[in-house]
């Protein structure tokens, strides 16, 4: 059983982006290192906003949100040399940079944070391209790859910095069964400890608005409904 909390929410609220109306209120939630959480809820229930808040991209409205013991402050300036410990894969194609090639998209964070040119950074992240079966797309313009593959490229990009927590916003939405199966298998390997991450089990928080996709028995589930996050009691089964 995991005992180290990596994310802690105490009474956290999130407002809608278009006004002061609360979207989520009074969330108390603790995520332990190595957990795999699946957040379900209807479309528009605030799952994406919750993930964005965890990544520090959306301000919280009240309460305390901490990651690794430090408060998560949206918009706070980051000191030079700061590397995010939380990775985020956006919904619907991963928001790749369209003017870069696939390999450059994946290599950009490494190049930026380790101050190496993009070709050098591509060499560094190449194992991730291999691990995610993306080698044949390496030179393709990112704006021209299909949505399912773009989502996988976004996953590689998020993993390239070796984050300790990975947030995935509805990663398998609209995918065919083959891609969905691949994702479930790969996320399981990440949770158990991927060799490219030195076998360190990764903490995963995944959202889905399709309850049928949440049939896998491994992730713990929380449900967003009427602005409240319904979290079940502590799990007793080890990951």
């Amino acid at each position: 059983m995991n005992t180290i909390p990596v994310i802690q929410l105490d009474g956290v609220g999130i407002r809608r982006s278009d006004g002061d109306v609360p979207l989520i209120e009074d969330v108390d939630w603790t995520v332990m290192a190595g957990d795999w959480w699946e957040i379900t809820g209807a479309h528009g229930s605030g799952k994406s906003a919750l993930l964005l808040a965890l990544a520090g991209l959306v301000p919280t409205a009240g309460g305390t949100l901490t990651a690794f013991g430090e408060p998560v402050l949206s918009g706070a300036p980051k000191p030079p040399g700061w590397i995010p410990r939380v990775g985020l894969v956006f919904e619907g194609g991963g928001r790749l940079l369209r003017d870069l090639r696939v390999a450059e998209n994946i290599a950009l964070p490494t190049g930026y944070h380790h101050n190496c040119s993009l070709p050098e950074a591509v060499d560094r992240v190449w194992p991730w391209l291999e691990a995610l079966d993306l080698e044949r797309l390496a030179d393709a313009p990112a704006g021209r790859v299909g949505r399912a593959w773009a989502q996988r490229i976004a996953l590689a990009r998020a993993l390239s910095l070796g984050p300790e927590i990975l947030l995935l916003d509805n990663p398998t939405a609209g995918m065919d069964p083959a891609h969905t199966v691949w994702w479930q298998g790969f996320l399981l390997r990440l949770c158990q400890g991927h060799p490219l991450l030195q076998g360190r089990p990764m903490t995963l928080i995944e959202t889905t608005d399709n309850p049928r996709a949440a049939m896998n028995s491994l992730p713990r589930r929380a449900h967003l409904e009427n602005g409240r996050l319904i979290v079940p009691g502590p799990r007793t089964d080890p990951v």
Binding site: L52, A55, L57, K78, W82, I83, P84, G87, L88, F90, G94, R95, L96, L97, R98, D99, L108, P109, Y112, H113, A154, R157, A158, L161
Partner: peptide, 19 residues
């Protein structure tokens, strides 16, 4: 370029990557 970048959420993607 930048307006499209913003409209398609690439700016948030950069922020999420610490860029």
């Amino acid at each position: 370029e930048l307006g499209t970048c913003r409209a398609l959420g690439e700016v948030e993607a950069l922020e999420a990557l610490g860029i």
